[in-house]
Design a protein around this nucleic acid. Structure first.
Lengths: 191, 191
DNA sequence: GCCGCTTGTTGGCAGCTTGTCAACAGGGTG
DNA sequence: CACCCTGTTGACAAGCTGCCAACAAGCGGC
């Protein structure tokens, strides 16, 4: 930190979120490996050492940011209109697509799927677990049926790939994605 | 390089593959970021600078290894037994599952899906494109139907996630995965 | 058999990155 | 106003990557 900004003394929580937000801003544009702690500190308007003070390690900060990003806002998961199961499934897919397109940049920045890094994967899997819970309860299915959960997690793999086809490649438009995912989810819920 | 091994002068191609194999061995166990060029050089029994000589950059070497890993062996894609489409699809899924379980360690090491890194993603997408071609031609579908290709790519997302459920989490057994993927692929091919 | 050249191979250097630590300073308290 | 707690910082040490000049293995000319 060199100039223009006098030393501000902030509440720890405030500073923490300030740094986290800065990190999210950077990771939205460049992948983890290409963002140096110097960049992070500059973006947050803070000395590099402060990152370590708050998060311990560059990696830990990244994991925090990732967790923050993947935590889907609570949102109403209950009021799915439509009586037929297929309609409710379609509504769930719609809700998801809304969320994704809204957070488009960040969602895509995190990549799609697992990274091969144990800790990163743990965070992603954690978020998935929550999402599985919401989907199953919203659709009146048993959230404890482990094979079913596994199938839904597999389905999420397709969800990620499909939204990529939609948002990045433009190879599918939204109605196509909607139909693809709805059909697939209905199929998966059977049996 | 310090001792025990006199200076061997190899054919460039031989040396290249020797280094590549060593890299694949290491990346099978640890993720990219945790493998240093020193490790790579030691595993290959070679001076660190030689890696740069052959591949230019640590990242480039990684990309080569990744490409090598993802290049599914040619294999007979044509002789899919069974007349009914569903049988042929099932045969294709079986063939894929065989390949995956055979290369289990390496396949899983690379992670599942895209990383958010442009170059890495390019390699993965490239491999996917080839796989899409094989699947579509093997199943007598038009390989130029772009929306269809996109759906198959989306399907691959589920394939990755499902094989992870099978091989890593053990939440699904092979028959379950087989059925899940077969049903999904059949559904996707319709429309 | 000796010499020299091509080129595969190596050790060491320079720049950059991350984590740590002691020191600095904001702002509330007596 | 002096003091102390603690948020904040600059500087240092260790490690990693890419580059370059130098070394030497093996082949061809004489």
């Amino acid at each position: 930190m060199n100039e223009l900004a006098a030393r501000r003394r902030l509440d720890p929580d405030a500073r923490r979120t300030e740094i986290l937000d800065a990190a999210l801003r950077l990771y939205a544009v460049r992948p983890y490996a290409e963002v140096s702690t110097t960049d992070l500190a500059r973006e947050a308007g803070v000395a590099r050492a402060l990152l370590n003070h708050y998060f311990g390690t560059k990696r830990a900060l990244y994991l925090e940011a990732l967790r923050e990003l993947l935590t889907i806002p609570e949102q109403a998961a209950a009021d799915l209109a439509g009586q037929r199961r297929e309609d409710r499934v379609a509504a769930a897919v719609d809700w998801f697509l809304d969320t994704v397109s809204e957070r488009r940049t960040l969602w895509l920045s995190v990549g799609i799927g697992l990274s091969g890094d144990a800790e990163v994967d743990a965070v992603v899997e954690d978020a998935d677990e929550t999402a599985v819970d919401r989907v199953l309860t919203a659709l009146d299915r048993d959230p404890c049926d482990e094979p079913l959960r596994a199938r839904v997690r597999a389905f999420f793999g397709m969800v990620r790939a499909a939204s990529r086809e939609w948002l990045v490649r433009g190879a599918l438009d939204r109605p196509a994605v909607r139909k693809l995912l709805t059909t697939a989810l209905v199929t998966i819920l059977e049996d």
